[in-house]
């Protein structure tokens, strides 16, 4: 399923986003990077139809997002939110069940999704007392359980320790191999470098650069997006970025 943005702009008092022009191919991973407040979450919410663009159009699989019913939308896309609510007295199972709203209950798939993030034994635990990282993993498992073609994730690795970050990157690769389209906002540039096929770089709502990771995630572009200055260093699997702290 393709996602196409055509001269999309959006504004609230004190913030303007766009114009955004790009199209995301099926079976790819796209990462949106930029400073806090640069418009990453806003872009994701626009793609998902939670916000309406002021101008331009957003199409998923050829049809305008604004014309999709919530039911059609849920079939095509799932969303892992940056913030995690604590619903009253929910168990992990209850949270998972919510994500199974569209496809219906399937115990096996639910357990497989939880198992993939290493939390199968948490199924009957109280969701609200889990640690931040555990809750993050449950929300990822819930998105896997929802099993939509396009998976939008807003900072999917926040709260996670290094082991679990690596686990999540592996899962993302697996999902991509399975044909899913992933659209992520991320802060870890090394992970973006190794994981993403395409990158969108934002600064103050402006599109600094969009394109294949290899040609877009460059020192020049990063220096435009952030205030610190960047350099690369070589590692076993290629170069990595580091921002210098000289300010």
């Amino acid at each position: 399923m393709k996602v196409e943005l055509d001269s999309v702009t959006f504004s609230v008092p004190s913030f303007e986003l766009g114009p955004l022009n790009f199209s995301i191919e099926e079976g790819t991973i796209t990462a949106i990077i930029g400073k806090n407040g640069s418009g990453k979450s806003t872009t994701l919410k626009l793609i998902h139809g939670d916000l309406r663009p002021d101008t331009g159009s957003i199409r998923i699989d050829g049809s305008k997002v604004s014309s999709l019913s919530s039911s059609q939308l849920a079939e095509k896309t799932s969303f892992v939110w940056q913030e995690i609510y604590s619903p009253m007295s929910f168990s992990v199972r209850d949270v998972m069940n919510v994500s199974g709203y569209k496809r219906g209950f399937d115990e096996d798939r639910m357990m497989m999704a939880l198992d993939e993030v290493g939390l199968a034994s948490f199924i009957d635990r109280d969701f609200s007392v889990l640690s931040g990282g555990e809750r993050r993993l449950v929300t990822l498992a819930a998105a896997i359980y929802q099993d939509s073609e396009i998976m939008i994730m807003d900072e999917p690795t926040n709260f996670l320790d290094i082991d679990n970050q690596i686990l999540v990157y592996k899962i993302m690769k697996r999902l991509k191999m399975a044909g899913k389209t992933l659209i992520l906002s991320m802060h870890d540039l090394d992970a973006v470098h190794h994981l993403a096929d395409f990158v969108l770089i934002l600064r103050n709502g402006n599109n600094i650069a969009w394109g294949r990771t290899i040609s877009t995630l460059t020192i020049e572009n990063l220096n435009k997006a952030f205030n610190v200055s960047f350099q690369t260093y070589d590692t076993v699997n290629g170069s990595s970025f580091v921002g210098s702290y000289k300010g």
């Binding site: 919530s70 079939e75 609510y85 619903p87 949270v95 919510v98």
Partner: peptide, 13 residues
């Protein structure tokens, strides 16, 4: 209960 936006994203009207 998990948020209006989340409810919509799983297919609830």
């Amino acid at each position: 209960q998990m948020g209006d936006m989340h409810a919509r994203s799983v297919g609830v009207n």
